[in-house]
């Protein structure tokens, strides 16, 4: 399927509305990305004040989700979009749900800093920061692929999730080992495990958005697909 430009309608206002809608998703994505960057900084330098700010900022992200949802509803009701326009609006509606959930997960990670429950082990902290950095990079790539509607980039970002899952599983095994050695430390480790799980989930949400980007570009639903299948599809189409 040929990629369709969203700014070529006869109605100039409709062009503007779709452009604003797309930009608003990137604004929301940028805000969540900043939340993650701040969280990483808060973990690295143990800054509870910054983590607190991240938690407060989540309300702004929730508000953006509601505004964009309302705009999608308004465009569907007033413009009756069809084909690629309809797919764009529906994709955006799903994308912002994922972005909002990313915000929630990041808020949960920040709580580790405000509650002063960061791992005492420097090895664990470094591994945790490494995963966070990888997720941040994946997030940047995701929004970049979304902005350019570039399914090839989306696929490359999609692949990065495997790296994150590997790091996550390695750290998980290490922590489980530590708990087995000293069961009294379980409560402290549990909080860290929840936070790690949240970081890993942010990666999964990025993966979801990449699937939407591929689906939008190709005009077919790419969700719940394996990486091999997605690559095969792209090859078949190109």
């Amino acid at each position: 399927m040929q990629q369709v430009a969203f700014n070529t309608h006869i109605s100039g206002k409709f062009n503007t509305e779709l452009e604003n809608l797309r930009n608003s998703v990137l604004t929301m994505g940028g805000a969540v990305e900043q939340q993650l960057i701040d969280t990483i900084k808060a973990i690295r330098y143990n800054m509870p004040g910054l983590a607190e700010k991240v938690m407060l900022n989540d309300a702004a992200i929730n508000s953006m989700e509601m505004q964009i949802d309302q705009e999608c509803l308004r465009i569907i009701a007033k413009r009756h979009p069809t084909a690629s326009d309809l797919r764009l609006v529906m994709t955006i509606s799903k994308t912002i749900t994922d972005i909002e959930r990313m915000g929630d997960e990041i808020e949960r990670i920040s709580r580790l800093v405000t509650k002063q429950q960061l791992p005492s082990s420097e090895t664990v902290k470094s591994s945790m920061l490494l995963i966070c950095e990888q997720v941040a990079q994946m997030m940047r790539g995701t929004f970049d692929a979304f902005a350019r509607q570039d399914e090839q980039s989306a696929l490359e970002v999609y692949e990065q999730d495997d790296l994150i899952d590997n790091e996550y599983n390695k750290l998980l095994s290490y922590i489980v080992g530590e708990i087995e050695k000293n069961t009294e430390s379980m409560r402290d480790w549990l909080e860290i495990l929840w936070a790690l799980r949240s970081i890993e989930r942010v990666g999964d949400r990025c993966k979801n958005i990449c699937e939407y980007v591929v689906g939008l570009a190709r005009g077919e639903d790419a969700r719940h697909s394996t990486l091999e299948n997605m690559v095969k599809r792209l090859k078949n189409f190109s």
Binding site: N20, S24, T27, M28, A31, A59, A60, S63, M64, Q67, I68, Q70, E71
Partner: peptide
């Protein structure tokens, strides 16, 4: 809160 869409 940031207003994403201006409305008349």
């Amino acid at each position: 809160m940031l207003t994403l869409f201006e409305r008349e």
